[in-house]
Amino acid sequence: MEYTEGVVKDKETVIHVHPNDYEKAGNSYLMAIVAVIAGMPLPIINLIASGVYYLGNLKASYFVRWHCIQAILAQTIIIPFNSIAWGWTLSVMLNKTEPTLYYGIYLFAVILLNIIEFVAVINTASRVNKGENVRWIIIAPLTDKLCSKKNKSPYPLY
């Protein structure tokens, strides 16, 4: 029996999605937000949290795995900017360098980038929870290549 309540059309294929999978997929984006609250000083914590969530969902449906990978890639892109800002701030705090105009501009840009990413992640998680397949412009094609379409779910719907 085919489950057809949730249908996501992805390019040429039609993916049947169980309603519980929408929540799991949406939670993959929220893992980074929870990690920000828990480990604010270390930017790698967000990536680790997203990676652990993905590993916990390796046997989930393609839809869930795909969104987990997209969330990991979103974190991977922002990690270098956060790491440089964190290291530079630590250097300034330990009086090894003086805060310059470049430091202020870079810190402002990184904070703005993080705010934009934070809003985008919350928006994406909300839309995915509602059943919409959200594809980030730069990350989605790479996610398509990295995510196996093989159904690893122990309870296939079709």
Score class of each variant (00 low, 15 high):
residue 50 S to M: 12
residue 85 A to D: 15
residue 116 I to F: 10
residue 125 A to D: 09
residue 80 P to I: 01
residue 79 I to V: 15
residue 1 M to I: 12
residue 37 I to R: 02
residue 82 N to Q: 11
residue 83 S to L: 11
residue 45 I to V: 15
residue 130 K to N: 08
residue 72 I to H: 02
residue 113 L to P: 07
residue 93 M to I: 10
residue 10 D to C: 01
residue 92 V to Y: 10
residue 103 Y to H: 13
residue 123 N to H: 04
residue 158 Y to C: 09
residue 3 Y to R: 12
residue 102 Y to C: 04
residue 86 W to A: 01
residue 134 V to S: 03
residue 74 A to G: 15
residue 2 E to Q: 10
residue 85 A to F: 03
residue 114 N to D: 15
residue 73 L to P: 02
residue 12 E to G: 01
residue 41 P to E: 08
residue 12 E to M: 03
residue 11 K to I: 03
residue 27 N to D: 12
residue 135 R to G: 07
residue 19 P to C: 01
residue 13 T to D: 10
residue 18 H to K: 13
residue 149 K to L: 13
residue 112 L to I: 00
residue 121 V to L: 14
residue 147 C to N: 14
residue 120 A to H: 05
residue 141 P to C: 09
residue 148 S to W: 10
residue 57 N to A: 14
residue 20 N to M: 05
residue 124 T to S: 15
residue 17 V to H: 07
residue 136 W to V: 14
residue 35 A to S: 15
residue 120 A to D: 12
residue 25 A to T: 00
residue 17 V to K: 09
residue 57 N to H: 15
residue 46 N to C: 11
residue 44 I to Q: 09
residue 124 T to R: 11
residue 71 A to M: 08
residue 22 Y to N: 14
residue 125 A to I: 05
residue 71 A to R: 01
residue 24 K to W: 12
residue 20 N to K: 14
residue 36 V to E: 06
residue 78 I to N: 06
residue 91 S to H: 06
residue 42 L to M: 14
residue 79 I to T: 14
residue 23 E to D: 13
residue 3 Y to T: 09
residue 99 P to T: 12
residue 103 Y to A: 09
residue 80 P to S: 06
residue 118 F to P: 00
residue 100 T to R: 07
residue 103 Y to S: 08
residue 51 G to I: 02
residue 69 I to Y: 00
residue 150 K to D: 12
residue 102 Y to E: 08
residue 55 L to I: 06
residue 90 L to M: 14
residue 117 E to F: 07
residue 124 T to Y: 10
residue 91 S to Q: 08
residue 149 K to N: 08
residue 4 T to A: 08
residue 45 I to C: 05
residue 82 N to A: 09
residue 124 T to E: 11
residue 125 A to V: 08
residue 56 G to M: 12
residue 134 V to I: 15
residue 77 I to M: 15
residue 91 S to K: 04
residue 65 R to K: 02
residue 145 K to G: 04
residue 97 T to S: 13
residue 84 I to P: 06
residue 1 M to Y: 10
residue 114 N to H: 08
residue 14 V to K: 06
residue 127 R to V: 05
residue 17 V to D: 03
residue 143 T to I: 04
residue 67 H to S: 02
residue 103 Y to W: 03
residue 140 A to T: 04
residue 124 T to P: 08
residue 77 I to A: 15
residue 10 D to H: 04
residue 61 S to W: 07
residue 86 W to V: 00
residue 55 L to Y: 05
residue 156 P to R: 12
residue 66 W to S: 10
residue 123 N to T: 06
residue 16 H to P: 01
residue 98 E to L: 13
residue 61 S to K: 12
residue 57 N to L: 14
residue 25 A to I: 03
residue 106 Y to L: 05
residue 102 Y to L: 13
residue 75 Q to C: 11
residue 156 P to W: 11
residue 44 I to T: 07
residue 150 K to Q: 13
residue 9 K to F: 03
